[in-house]
Amino acid sequence: MASSSSNNTHGKNLRNAVVALLAPLPSIFFYLSFLRHYSAAAEAGSLSPLWTWCYHHPLLLANTLFFLNVNVLFWLIGVLQSSHWMIDLYWTMIPLLLIHYFSTHPLAQCNSWRSRLVILLTWVWSIRLTHSYFRREKWQWGAREDWRFSDMHQQYGQKWWWISFFAVYLAQQVFLMGICLPLYVVHSKDKQLNIWDLLASLVCLTGVTIAYFADTQLHNFVTRNERLKKLGQDLVPNLDEGLWQYSRHPNYFGEQLWWWGLVIFAWNLGCGWCFVGALVNSLCLAYVTILVEERMLKQQYRAEAYKNYRKRTSVWIPWFKTSLTGKEKET
């Protein structure tokens, strides 16, 4: 029985890996076809209406491909599998795909050094987050979907199959395309590198570094509790060591620094309005923070410890612990 279960797990893991690797190919092949036709048309002096539209509307084309390939195709796969796990994985990959799209589009005009710098930073961010995702999922593809989607599935019941299109996918397009606008701006403005590019890079790298160490400390904490649970011993109720003694969500803080660092790149190029995407994402994460903490307080073994931890520790921005008053200690 154990061997059969293991084979089923390996089979599911392999199938999900194949599905995930094949899923973005329609957009990739379409874009490569556009580049090939554009290159040929540049020599011949003619371009079909479809490819002309793709040439003149790079941002609209990116959103169209996102809608068809991610919203529609990923959603159909999620409905068939009864699990919308793939969007969580591709959150780590879509910005990387977008920046290579923006940098190679024929209309791109940019400072080549700034382009290389931001591409490199995006690769570092993506590798960090992808590693964190697979480490958390025990190196499996599609073992589970985000708990928020599972909760919404229970909430909406039989209606979830169509509500999920809007709640999981269309919403993700708004967030992802919004926060990735600086990647587009970097490849649509040509300006010499300056001190603000250095500052933006430092903010981005600081965010990635904080998020990496915070996620690693959280992973070690969860792994330790899993080991204690198998041994039948009491679980450690709360993580309040390392970065977590200064912030209740240092991983979220690091992630937000990354996106606001990209905003500095855009602001330096005269497109400060790009802050809207990062602001909406931060507000969304603030709501997620509330949901996460409510989830913590529902777990009896950790509720009391987490209440005290919440009273003493900063929510996002790392800061020194505050002392509990006598009244707070009693409550």
Rank of each mutant, 00 (worst) to 15 (best):
F265Y: 15
Q256N: 14
W260T: 04
L228C: 00
S247W: 04
V208R: 00
F213Q: 02
K229V: 04
G254P: 10
N238A: 13
I264R: 07
N220G: 11
G242E: 05
L235Y: 01
F221C: 02
W258R: 07
L239H: 11
L231V: 01
F213Y: 14
W260V: 03
Q233T: 08
K229Y: 10
A266V: 06
F221P: 05
E226I: 10
Q256Y: 07
F253G: 04
L262N: 15
L243H: 01
W259K: 12
L243C: 02
N238Y: 09
Y246Q: 10
I264E: 08
Q217S: 01
D215C: 03
G261R: 08
V208N: 04
L257G: 12
D234F: 05
G254I: 02
N225M: 04
N251E: 10
Q245G: 11
A211M: 01
G232N: 00
R227D: 08
K229D: 10
G242P: 06
E226Q: 15
L257P: 08
W259Q: 08
L235A: 08
I210Y: 00
E226W: 11
L235F: 06
V222F: 02
W258H: 14
D240G: 13
F253E: 07
P237W: 07
H249W: 08
V222G: 03
E255F: 07
Y252P: 10
W259G: 10
L239V: 12
R227H: 10
W258D: 04
V263N: 12
P237V: 05
P237F: 04
I210R: 01
N220Q: 14
H219Y: 09
I210Q: 00
